[in-house]
Amino acid sequence: MFDVTLWAGLRPLADNQKVVRVQARTIWELLRKLEERYPGLAGPIKGEVAVSVNGVIYRNDWSQKLPEGAEIMLMRRLAGG
């Protein structure tokens, strides 16, 4: 079970919660379960979300396994130059 921190812009779409508890093995499963629980998150999850797992930011690789006790945060996908 992970405590997943949502960035401020997502919270209104998730019953105004800052932290959501989710049981998942991979980033893919984590995002799927979040979307099932909060359908309003579907839009941002498709293209706006990056996932920080223990400080490493994943923008695309949803196959990543989630280590036990990992610190997980949903962040906006970043722009770069």
Binding site: T5, W7, S52, N54, G55, V56, I57, E71, M73, M75
Partner: peptide, 9 residues
């Protein structure tokens, strides 16, 4: 813990 959230490696 970084100012933007995650903990640094």
């Amino acid at each position: 813990q970084s100012s933007y959230g995650p903990v640094y490696g």
